[in-house]
C-alpha cells in the first residue's frame, strides 16, 4: 500500500482526512453497479494483484488447510472488516497536503 498515494486538492470543500476516508469507505462498500465499481469488484481487483493482496491480507495468519476458495472467502470477510475501520491500513493511501 505504501506505493499508492491519493492526494486531494486542499482547496476542496471538506478536504479533511477523516471526511475523505468516510467518502472512500462509501465507495469501497458500494453495492450498486450504476454508481461505479462494487465492493465485490474492488475486492476481486485487489485479490488479483499479488503485491496488494499480500500487503492487505496476512495470508500466513490463515489456517493452513484451506482450499483456494475458502482462502478467498476469508480474505473477502477481512476486506469488509478493513474497510469498516477508517483507521485500518487500507486507507493509508489517502494523503492530505
Amino acid at each position: 500500500m505504501s506505493d499508492y498515494e491519493w492526494k486531494v486538492n486542499p482547496l476542496r470543500k471538506n478536504a479533511d482526512k477523516n471526511n475523505l476516508k468516510e467518502l472512500w469507505k462509501k465507495a469501497f462498500l458500494n453495492n450498486n453497479k450504476q454508481n461505479g465499481l462494487t465492493q465485490e469488484q474492488i475486492f476481486t481487483t485487489i485479490w488479483s494483484n499479488n503485491s496488494l493482496k499480500n500487503d492487505l491480507f496476512d495470508l500466513s495468519n490463515y489456517p493452513p488447510n484451506l482450499s483456494q476458495s475458502q482462502i478467498k472467502n476469508l480474505a473477502e470477510n477481512d476486506f469488509i472488516t478493513l474497510v469498516g475501520n477508517v483507521n485500518s491500513k487500507i486507507y493509508n493511501f489517502i494523503k492530505t497536503q
Binding site: N61, Y62, P63, P64, N65, L66, Q70, L74, T81
Partner: peptide, 17 residues
C-alpha cells in the same frame, strides 16, 4: 498430515481452525 474441518475467528478476531 494435519488438516482441519472448521474455521472460525478467535477472541482477537483472527482466523483459526
Amino acid at each position: 498430515f494435519l488438516t482441519s474441518k472448521k474455521i472460525f475467528k478467535n477472541a482477537n478476531n483472527e482466523w483459526e481452525s
